[in-house]
Design a protein around this nucleic acid. Structure first.
Lengths: 110, 110
DNA sequence: GTCAATTTCCTCTATATTGTAGAGGTAATG
DNA sequence: CATTACCTCTACAATATAGAGGAAATTGAC
């Protein structure tokens, strides 16, 4: 296993999406959330590969969902962010902020 | 060339360091700035490889520095962030903010 | 009931791009 | 020519990304 302390760029995005979706986070919704919020198109494969990596690191946890009464559909795999996952977000944000603060980034406030 | 629009995690860090160092950005100072601000150790090789990639993408530009009157020392290669580089930072920050805002990230304000 | 069509979601494989370290070479100065 | 400060190169590990295709669920025709 890696010893990396920081989230990769896409890992970061995906982790935030899972956090934001709360108990409705699974592959398809995570993808949609990212596309809607960032206007960035991502493949479903990219989502799951990243989710798997985040799970391997202990930053998210997954559980199988019960079938829903909708037409069709394989049962979902739900994800939630763990405490270490939240810490990783904080570390990453701190690193960025430490270098960005004070810079005149046109009101970017990040 | 790639079509990636977003900065990788380390590219992001390095680009911010160059921006912050203004006209004093070269390999050694970039490395030091990152280490001091983020408490993260990085090898000099990692710095230059990333700087080279950022230059290939047009996000930074380098120019050779004149020799200084200090004892020893090969002449420096100075870097500065280009306008597209600043845009890349903005895009990246916007993407993060769009997913982070509204979340209760314990006052993380990012 | 059961079978096939349909739907929604997930798994897997393969490749490109980034991240990372460190050995070793190069251009200065006194 | 010894010493110093900096940079280049190479090699490998981890992350990012796409997309084809398989799996599980529901519904309706028979």
């Amino acid at each position: 296993m890696s010893n990396r302390d920081y989230l990769g760029e896409f890992e970061h995005i995906v982790l935030l999406a899972v956090l934001r979706l709360d108990d409705q986070a699974y592959g398809v919704t995570v993808r949609r959330e990212i596309e809607v919020r960032t206007k960035r198109e991502v493949s479903i494969g990219a989502i799951y590969a990243t989710l798997d990596r985040l799970e391997a690191k202990g930053y998210v946890q997954s559980r199988p969902g019960d079938p829903t009464p909708e037409r069709g559909g394989r049962s979902k795999r739900f994800f939630r962010v763990t405490a270490p996952g939240v810490s990783a977000i904080h570390r990453t944000h701190r690193a960025i902020r430490s270098l960005a603060e004070g810079l005149d980034l046109l009101g970017s406030r990040l």
